[in-house]
């Protein structure tokens, strides 16, 4: 018979890794299933400046590796697999991976979210040919070239500032006339000579045959369209949850975010959710990590009552 884990954590980002740390410190049998790269969105973030203590060597990959090591040191087990199905109906929860089937007394869903498309013409067709959602991955290509950044939140500004190390110019296209991003980031961006802003505008179409050669934008106030000559378009307009595989198994809101109480409990007994995948207001490394810790405490309490 297969090994029954105390906690199966789906997703190896900051929420999952914190759950791993707290779970293994509580001497529970904890397995983290990750399909791709650990760290989730954190692993592709150039600088994580807003996580307490993350001052020196504050890159996303470095913070990821430290979190992973810390969880591993206390006994968290890791497996690389992609979850393709779940069965949450029994007392023992079943998680079906591409390679293997896993059984657990509890499950913590920490699959996170992925960048949302901005919805302009040719966005999909020119992906990886100038349209990008990952500045750390692709900035190298745009050395000395002009790029546009779509969005006005923390991510958009952080990545725009990072891109100025490579690109000749960075034009931030934002649909409103003020930014949502943290004031300190705004200040940095406004003071950066390579960054320009185009307000009240949205992207309409990426131009170019095989690679991006320009971006057509539309002013939402006047309706006027214009083209800016750029070779790169970086999109940071928000996130969509990665929850397709759980559809019909647990309660979600209309956008697919999982609904939990303050203890991270979903509507299904023994199933918890943590991090960006959850319906909440602030999606950051720090809130993901906090969710991960809380979920484990709730899971531990559930295990003690249910399986004593």
């Amino acid at each position: 018979m297969a090994n029954i884990h105390d906690i199966i954590i789906i997703g190896g980002g900051p929420a999952g890794l914190s759950s791993g740390l707290y779970g293994s410190r509580a001497k529970l049998d904890v397995l983290i299933i990750e399909k791709g790269n650990f760290g989730g969105q954190m692993s592709t973030t150039a600088e994580v400046e807003n996580y307490p203590g993350s001052i020196e060597n504050a890159t996303g990959p470095s913070l990821t590796e430290r979190m992973r090591q810390q969880a591993e040191e206390f006994g968290t087990k890791f497996v690389k697999d992609e979850v393709v199905g779940v069965d949450f109906t029994g007392d023992i929860k079943v998680v079906k991976g591409k390679n293997e089937e896993y059984q657990g007394r509890t499950v913590i869903i920490a699959t996170g979210a992925e960048p949302r498309l901005a919805g302009f013409k040719n966005e999909v067709e020119l992906r990886a040919r100038g349209v990008s959602y990952c500045a750390t991955c692709d900035a190298d290509f745009f050395e000395g070239l002009d790029v546009a950044v779509i969005g006005g939140g923390d991510s958009a500004l952080t990545e725009a500032i990072y891109l100025t190390k490579f690109a000749e110019s960075v034009t931030i296209i934002h649909r409103r006339d003020e930014l949502r991003a943290a004031k300190s980031l705004q200040e940095k961006a406004f003071n950066n000579p390579k960054i320009k802003f185009i307000w009240n505008s949205v992207p309409v179409e990426a131009r170019g045959e095989e690679i991006v050669e320009g971006l057509i934008i539309k002013n939402v106030k006047t309706g006027e369209t214009s083209e800016i000559p750029v070779n790169g378009i970086f999109v940071f307009v928000g996130l969509d949850p990665i929850t397709e595989v759980f559809r019909g198994h647990i309660e979600m809101d209309e956008r697919g975010y999982i609904i939990t109480d303050t203890e991270m409990r979903t509507n299904v007994e023994g199933v918890f959710a943590a991090g960006d995948v959850r319906q909440k207001t602030l999606r950051q490394v720090i809130t993901a990590a906090a969710d991960g810790a809380i979920a484990v405490i709730a899971a531990e309490e559930y295990i003690n009552e249910k399986f004593k």
């Binding site: 791709g36 990008s132 991955c137 692709d138």
Partner: peptide, 30 residues
């Protein structure tokens, strides 16, 4: 860039020197 690759990771299979299939980053989850 000459191979029209401006996003990572990208995986391409060439057959007889021609691109036969291209996997862009969004198509590679594992």
């Amino acid at each position: 860039i000459a191979q029209k690759v401006l996003g990572l990771p990208t995986m391409i299979v060439y057959v007889n020197g021609e691109k036969a299939e291209v996997l862009t980053p969004d198509k590679i989850s594992s």
